[in-house]
Amino acid sequence: MLVAAGVFPHPPVLVPGVAGHRAADLDGMRANCELAVTRLFDNDPDLVVVLGGDDRTACHGSDVTGTLAPYGLDMTFGDGSARLPLSLTIGRWLLESHIDRAAREFHSVAWNATPAECFRLGERIADRAARVALLVLGDGSACRTERSPGFLEPDAVAYDDHVAEALRCGDTTALAALRPKTADRLLVAGRPAWQVLAGAASERSPSGELLDYSAPYGVGYFVATWLFDSAFPSSGRSEPDRAETRAE
C-alpha cells in the first residue's frame, strides 16, 4: 500500500557538479527535493520504489549504479551491477544521503507505455509491500519558450500548468487522463511515470502539495509530495477504465 509519494525532476543539471558556476540556479529546487525525500522517509516505508521513464519497462532491483558518463560527466552513484537510465540515476542521487533508511527498488517505465499499462504497473508497485513510498521522476514540457531545447509549442505552458495543478491537488484522474500523443509532441518526459503514480495511488486519497514548479532552462520541473491518511482508503477504482478509454 502506498503511504507517501514524491514527484521530482530529473535533468542532469540537478546534480550540483554538472552545471559549474550556474549550479546555484537550482539551489532552491534542490532544497525542495530534499524536503520531499525526507517526507517520504518520515512515513516509515518498508520499501522505497524509485520510478522513472526509460526506453523500456523494467525492474532493476536494488543492486544498481547510476552514471552520468553518457552525458560527458565522470559521476556515478552507487556501485551495483545494474546500470540505471537517466531518470533513475537522478533518483539514486536524490537518495544518496538516505540510502540505508529503507529497502529500495528501481523501476523504469517505457516512454511509450499506454496510460492503462502505466496505471496497472502502479497498482502492482503499490502492492509490493505493506508500506510503499514512491519516488517518481518526471519532467514537464521541453517546448515552453523559443529558448527551450524543443523550441516553442504554444500549448506547452498550459500543459505544464495543468500537470502542476494535478500534482498540487493529488488528482489521480487528471494524471491518468494525460494523452501520450500530446505529451510526445510537447517533449514531456514525465507522462508515463506520473500515470504509474496515478495507478499506485488509485485506492487512496492523496493529500498533495506542490513544493516547486519552475522552468529556468525552458523545461518544466515539478517537486510535489503526496501523503495519505492511511486509516481511510478511498473506494473505487474507476481510473483504470478512464485510462483505457483515453488511451490512443
Binding site: P70, Y71, L86, G150, V219
Partner: peptide, 12 residues
C-alpha cells in the same frame, strides 16, 4: 534545426 536535449553517448 533541432537543439540537443539530454543527448547521450557511450563514447562520443
Amino acid at each position: 534545426r533541432t537543439r540537443p536535449h539530454r543527448v547521450r553517448y557511450e563514447d562520443v
